[in-house]
Amino acid sequence: MHRSSLDCVHATCDGQAAHSSQPQQRISVNTYSPSQDQFTPAHCDRTFNRIGYGAMQLAGPHVWGPPTDRAAAVAVLRAALDAGVNHIDTSDFYGPHATNQIIREALHPYTDELTIVTKIGFLRGADQSWIPAASPQQLRDAVHSNLSNLGLDALDVVNFRAPGLDGADGSPIGEALAVLAVLKKEGLVRHIGLSNVDAQQVAEAQRITNIVCVQNHYNLVHRGDDALIDTLAAQGIAYVPFFPLGGFSPLQSGALNEVAAAMDARPMQVALAWLLQRAPNMLVIPGTSSVAHLRENVAAGALRLDAAALQALNAM
């Protein structure tokens, strides 16, 4: 069935993994589906399988231009849906435009179950720079650009990517959220999220409109958002860590390697499993341009870290 309405099954899951002291077996890419672990944010009519896919790596080097192998990029997207992913994170400033155009080529017309989350608030300069773009007209233009390149009449979720290239800078975001609230009333945006924000900015946005998700930098070794994650969990708001595997420099840790070896898994699978067990509102969106790597990422959802493994990882 292809998308014709906002109707969806409102399945929820508390996301709490049962801890076991028994030895773990190598996880299978054939027996686990992301649909086994879901989260429905408050004020949202979309249910997310907690393992999603981040499309940034589908663009060329430095998130600029088209990929070297477009057919491979299309294959990864189709494999993601075949593996049970129902949540793709993207933006029209990836490429720019290239990633959204590949998503459309690979997956349009979209199934009812697929949720596409996009970001606005930045543009790309001709020198490949990242330029804040949050005037009312720039935000409106960005929504229309995402709609056009994705081939949609309305965007499921739009995250406002707040200013600050090295993390949240605390600047006011109310004006931008007011613009998004108008676009929501116009039917061009269904749900609103935030990216690169701190707790005060989240509260400022919530005084204007409902927020369904927050996307910030967070992983095993970058845990500045611990308090915010817990606050959002209590409110039923999804938290989506970007760079869940470390960012441009992959996570490297002896403790991570030891836990992975004991579980007969790969270190990056353990890092994803730790995120999923960190909080029930956590949605992970690891990106890759490889079908084999995609399947490994998805299979990480089957891992259950016991108390000893969690203690070792939490001490990193």
Rank of each mutant, 00 (worst) to 15 (best):
Q25A: 10
Q138H: 06
N146H: 10
A312W: 02
L188T: 02
I116P: 00
P244K: 12
R46D: 08
D153S: 15
Y94R: 03
D198C: 06
G236M: 09
Y239D: 11
H293V: 14
P132D: 14
P66I: 00
S253E: 14
G224E: 13
R161N: 14
P280F: 02
D45K: 08
R278A: 11
A299K: 02
N149R: 08
T115D: 04
I102N: 09
E296K: 10
S249G: 06
S289C: 07
A262T: 06
R223V: 03
A255L: 14
D69F: 02
K119H: 12
L58N: 15
A315G: 11
T288Y: 07
V74W: 01
L188H: 06
R50I: 12
A83I: 04
T68C: 03
Q269V: 11
S289L: 03
Q200V: 14
D37G: 06
D82W: 06
R304Y: 05
V9C: 12
T231Q: 05
I285E: 08
A17V: 13
A234K: 03
V63L: 14
A312I: 09
T90W: 06
R104I: 12
V143Y: 02
C44K: 09
A59F: 03
F122S: 00
A178K: 10
Q138T: 04
S21C: 08
D198Q: 07
P163F: 00
Q269A: 10
N297K: 15
L107F: 08
G246C: 07
S145D: 02
L165A: 08
L188E: 08
Y239W: 10
